[in-house]
Design a protein around this nucleic acid. Structure first.
Length: 488
RNA sequence: GGGGGAUUACGCUAACCUGGUAGACUACCAGCUUUGGGAGCUGGCCAUCCGUGUUCAAAUCACGGAUCCCCCA
């Protein structure tokens, strides 16, 4: 074993650091070597390579199904936003202006009014909605767009996790009442939870943001929050009730059933390609990425093994397996490159994280079997050819469950509960993870904690059943519980 | 937000201190032989991050920029 890993390092192939020893470097290597992303020429930009873009397309597939079934439709809106739109909602402007890219020229001509490249599309989309909404019969208006957005990131960019340009979906809906908007916000949050936990196998904390962490311009923000193995949190998705904060400046009004003119209630919600970064961080191991089966674009790879003269027989069987799996609806590739040895292919597909590998060689052909290897535990199992589709299908479900269970255990283990500020600081500084504490609800305490420890309130649970006695910072009576953490 | 380090071929690196021929391994291409955990031989292809300055001469020295990584907050 030692000899093998030495050889690995010598050759500078594969992942050369351990996930547990240098997490940042490990992540950077996995992203590069699994061919997920490649750095662009401008800071914070990168190419989403086919291996990661295909995951994004799976996410789109799953999420589109959820929102289509509940009456939403996809649309697309312009990317260039006049400066005057952004300035209509004050909080929104203050939240976003430090990080927008400005367009100042069209061709050789200086523009009379500067344009921003969308950092989010509320203002653009609402300028359309004000024209499209006239009566209560136009409501609810339920649209979503899949697009790229730009937010200038000057420091600490990381592929998928934080960049100046990324891909996301942004849903923008208009409702007649606050109650309907509340319902929408919570329904979408549940979709996000389902997508993340049931498909990406990324376990979450779910709840509300504090006033200072909410979306700029929102009434309130709900969030799904994940924990990375290095103890830092990732905000994986947010769903906002914008109240009438945007409908008023953007003049989105409708005539209700009583012929009264009313301002509408709007929501917005988004998830981004950082989900891909989160699932790589959470599930990957020292050999590379592990893509959870239910979101994996390719679920199985067949590696044929043969000596010269045996290839016909082996390849014939390999193709049989391929079509059997394809018939069963399992997306599969046959790696029949003849310029690579089986060992090379094993390492390659493990690095890329394909959930199941099927090995078939002369021995197996003779016995009417094939070897099935699961990526998460690397466990091998010989299975009969007849039962191969069923065996692989079962194994994929098992891997999915195992990945989630492991990640859930890690999330639970990352949570420290304390009302003692000394222990709070120590935990944030040494171990990281979420710290669950009582909070008086005061922004002063929240700001002090951020300044002194770098931790922010990530999630306020919806139901604080056992509200803690005192605020972790000021010691006064706690109004609610909050999960604190440092975040990406 | 603050600090440190780095950048030479796809990748890892030598030459830098002391200015003067860009070298190795890997990858890639071709051929032959191989194939149950990163195969071997032979031949070939590919590089000094960008800009300015100093100099007869810059990978090397100086200044500016870009990017990446790490540490701290």
């Amino acid at each position: 074993m030692a000899g093998k890993s030495d050889k690995r390092e010598e050759r500078q192939e594969g992942i050369t650091v351990k996930k547990s020893e240098n997490f940042s470097e490990w992540y950077t290597q996995v992203v590069a070597k699994a061919e997920l992303a490649d750095y662009g020429p401008v800071q914070g930009t990168s190419a989403f390579m086919p291996n990661s873009y295909a995951i994004w397309e799976r996410i789109q597939e799953v999420f589109n199904k959820m929102i289509f079934e509940t009456g939403h439709r996809n649309a697309y809106f312009p990317m260039l936003i006049p400066e005057s739109f952004l300035t209509k909602e004050k909080e929104h402007l203050e939240g976003f202006s430090p990080e927008v890219f400005w367009v100042t020229h069209s061709g050789d001509n200086k523009l009379g009014e500067r344009l921003v490249i969308r950092p989010t599309s509320e203002t653009m989309i609402y300028s359309f909605y004000s024209k499209w909404v006239r009566s209560w019969r136009d409501l609810p208006l339920l649209l979503n767009q899949w697009c790229n957005i730009l937010r200038a990131e000057i420091k600490s960019t990381k592929p998928f996790i934080r960049g100046s340009e990324f891909l996301w979906q942004e849903g923008h809906t208009v409702h007649a009442t606050k109650e309907e908007a509340d319902k929408e916000v919570m329904m979408i949050l549940e979709f996000y939870r389902k997508l993340s936990e049931d498909y990406l196998a990324v376990p979450l904390l779910v709840g509300k943001k504090s006033e200072s962490e909410k979306f700029a311009g929102a009434l309130y923000t709900t969030t799904i929050e994940a924990m990375m193995p290095d103890g830092k949190a990732v905000q994986a998705g947010t769903s906002h009730n914008l109240g009438q904060n945007f409908s008023k400046p953007f003049d989105i009004k409708f005539l209700d059933k009583d012929s009264k003119l009313q301002y509408a209630w709007t929501t917005s919600w988004g998830i981004a390609t950082r989900l891909i970064g989160a699932l790589i961080m959470i599930h990957g191991d020292d050999r590379g990425a592990i893509i959870p089966p239910r979101i994996a674009p390719i679920k199985a790879v067949i590696v044929p093994i043969y000596k010269t003269g045996e290839e016909k027989e082996v390849l014939a069987k390999a193709r049989e397996i391929k079509s059997a799996l394809a018939t069963a609806g399992i997306s599969v590739i046959l790696d029949d490159r003849d310029d690579r040895t089986p060992g090379w292919k094993f390492n390659d597909h493990e690095m890329k994280g394909i959930p199941v590998r099927i090995e078939i060689g002369p021995r197996d052909v003779k016995e009417g079997k094939a070897v099935m290897v699961r990526r998460d535990t690397l466990e091998k199992k010989s299975v009969s050819m007849q039962a191969i589709s069923a065996s692989v299908a079962d194994l994929l479900e098992d891997i999915q469950k195992n990945l989630f269970a492991k990640a859930k255990a890690a999330l639970d283990a990352s949570i420290t509960i304390t009302d003692d500020y000394g222990q709070f600081r120590q935990t944030i500084e040494n171990k990281g993870g979420f710290v669950l504490s009582g909070w008086c609800g005061g922004q002063a305490c929240e700001a002090k904690i951020k300044e002194e420890t770098g931790a922010t309130i990530r999630v306020i649970p919806f139901e604080s059943k056992d509200v803690r006695q005192k605020c972790v910072y000021c010691g006064k009576k706690a109004e609610q519980n909050a999960y604190f953490a440092r975040a990406y």
